[in-house]
Simulated assay, not measured.
Amino acid sequence: MGVINFFEFINTDFFSWVVLPILIFLSRIIDVSIGTIRIIFVSRGKKNLAPLLGFFEVLVWIVAISQIMKHLDNIACYFAYAAGFAMGTLVGMILEEKLAIGMLVVRVILVKDECQLMERLHNAGFGVTVVDAKGANGDVKIVYTIIKRKELEEALEIVTMCNSKAFYSIEDARTVNQGIFRNSQFYGRSKPGNLSLLKRSGTFRRNVK
């Protein structure tokens, strides 16, 4: 009796114009969110997780698109599909910010280091590398630090507190090997290890330990 009632329900106008569009909308949010995270994992070199997410992404997408093809005369499904894609993109971006996956390279160019930025970053637990360079107006110092994405806000706060007009740039570090990073168990102290090495950058002249 219950099975009969279920089949009767899915053939009603309420299911076709309300329940089905909602299900398609939710399915699109799920598969687009997974897709956004999958692309991020691909860019981060996560070879194990990216294919797994791709499997579930396509699986959910097939379920959603199959319902669209079965109800081509239902315009509500079209709007639900498009709205789910838009919302899924937003949700995926929010999830990426919350997960804060990967490493970043923060590069700061200083004309004068009056507030001892290198020491402040080091005391906060960040590995620091310094390069002497020349700018348009004379000698400058380039300060490199490789950090986790979730630590970016704190690192930038230290930089701006030292010099609110400091020039800095931020980029993704795809591969980091043998670095000094924060010890998650002891705030403000760095892990023992070798000097930080960024494969994409040039030769570093001096390292602050």
Rank of each mutant, 00 (worst) to 15 (best):
L110I: 08
R44E: 08
R149S: 04
L95Q: 05
L95A: 05
T129R: 14
R107Y: 12
M161V: 02
L110K: 03
T36K: 01
G135K: 09
Y81H: 10
M103Y: 06
E8F: 12
R189L: 08
Y144S: 08
I94R: 11
Y187F: 14
I68S: 05
A173Q: 06
V108P: 02
F56R: 02
G88Y: 02
I180Q: 05
G92W: 05
E114L: 06
L198K: 09
K141A: 08
G202C: 11
E157D: 14
Y144E: 09
F79W: 15
I146K: 01
M93R: 05
I62C: 10
R120G: 04
T36R: 05
Y187Q: 13
R107T: 09
L53V: 15
E96A: 09
V91L: 07
I10Q: 10
S169G: 13
I22Q: 03
T12N: 08
L95T: 14
Y78G: 11
D139A: 14
I24N: 05
C115H: 10
F25S: 00
G54R: 00
L49V: 15
L104Y: 11
K46N: 11
V140A: 00
E151S: 07
E114Q: 08
Y144W: 15
D172V: 00
T12S: 11
L72P: 10
A133E: 15
P51Y: 06
R174M: 14
L197D: 05
K141W: 05
I22Y: 12
D113L: 08
